[in-house]
Simulated assay, not measured.
Amino acid sequence: MAPIAITPEASPEREIYVKKSVQVRSHSSSFSSIKLNDGNVIPQVALGVYKAPNGQETEDAVTAALDAGYRHIDSAARYANEEACGRAIRRWLERTGTPRDEVFICSKLWDADHGFEATFNALCESLDKFGLDYLDLYLIHSPAEDEEKRLESWRALETAQRLGKVKSIGVSNFGASHIESLLENARVVPAVNQVEVHPFCQRQALVDLCNENGIRIEAYSPLARGNKLQDPTICAIAEKYGKTSAQVLLNWSASRGNVVLPKSLTAHRIQSNLESFDFKLSPEDVAAIDNLEENYVTGSMHKSHD
């Protein structure tokens, strides 16, 4: 698809979709889906493919995830594996006869492509790489330091949504100041904010701000990149429920209403992560996990102190 030159429409009174979030049971998988503020539905667990190669290993992982029951794949232009994800998804849909609208696919705008026209063209390029007519979710991967460019990118996403190239639009790594600026200028409230969240990095003030505005939290690095799997509190709780530490961490995050994005290329771990939601943590155990907060950040993408 060739780059498309397009100009933003005059911005009418912004539309705010702040609705009560509800959970609905997916008919095609074993875990809940969540209704977003725009009325679309997102599966609560995704296969993350950060740092996954653009080849057979990633194709196999995406296929294994879909076979296991995942219906949400989270990629990004920056990950440079949209082609591999797209090949796996298209082949799986054809093999199983599953309708396209039963698999939720997300990608993200990289920092180099901020600005209205550049953003729109980047989305079209991602669609070409996936081999798809539309994405279910498209995010601004990281807030540009230039606020004007950031808002131009958001207007491009609003336009793409109106044109049907993406169903839902959102942001990633946005702090409170970025969210507040966007809310003051946007026609459409972001459906999600994808940020690092786990028991050791809870970002409660930012989470509260998003919740107040109907913006769903997507928790990336929900396992703290594996660095906290030996934490004594988590290990003790895992033993109590006959679960792994990873399953406890994922359960905690999902129980807070977050969409969780565990990453794995290993079939048995992909399956194990999917088995994290068939038990309920007691209030006492939730409180013990809540008390683990230490602002432990594993990545460098979050560009704010909240």
Rank of each mutant, 00 (worst) to 15 (best):
S181W: 10
W154F: 08
E125F: 07
K167Q: 15
F200V: 04
Q161F: 02
L229G: 05
D208W: 09
D113M: 04
Q161G: 02
P222F: 14
S142Y: 11
D231G: 02
L137A: 06
A156Q: 04
H178V: 00
T119C: 07
S221R: 07
V207A: 10
G164M: 06
V207N: 03
I179K: 07
C124Y: 07
G170Q: 12
S153M: 09
A160Q: 04
E158N: 03
R155Y: 10
L209D: 09
G115A: 10
K228D: 01
R225T: 10
L135V: 14
F200N: 07
R155F: 03
A191V: 14
V192Y: 14
R155G: 01
E117S: 02
A122S: 15
L223A: 02
F116A: 02
V207W: 11
E180N: 14
K228W: 11
L132K: 13
S181A: 11
A186P: 03
A156K: 03
A219S: 15
L183C: 08
C124P: 00
V171S: 09
E158Y: 04
L137Y: 08
G170D: 11
I215K: 05
I217C: 02
V192R: 04
V192G: 06
I215L: 10
I179L: 15
L139V: 10
E180M: 11
N173P: 04
L223R: 01
C124R: 14
G214N: 15
V192F: 12
R216Y: 05
R225S: 10
R203Y: 07
D136M: 10
E145G: 14
R225W: 11
Q230V: 02
D231S: 05
P143T: 13
K228C: 08
H198D: 14
E117P: 00
E158L: 05
K129I: 00
L127K: 04
L123P: 02
V207S: 03
Q161V: 00
Q230E: 09
Q204R: 12
I169E: 04
G164D: 07
L151G: 00
L135Y: 14
H141T: 00
Y220C: 04
R225H: 13
P143M: 12
V166D: 01
A205T: 13
E148C: 02
E145A: 12
Q230H: 09
S126H: 13
K167E: 12
A205E: 15
K129T: 03
N173K: 06
P222M: 09
L157C: 04
K165D: 00
G164L: 04
E180S: 10
E147N: 01
H178N: 15
I179G: 08
S177M: 06
A186Q: 09
V188S: 10
D208F: 01
V189G: 03
E212T: 03
L163M: 14
L137D: 08
V197F: 12
L163P: 05
I215S: 07
R155N: 07
L123D: 02
A176V: 11
F116P: 00
K129F: 13
E196P: 01
P143A: 09
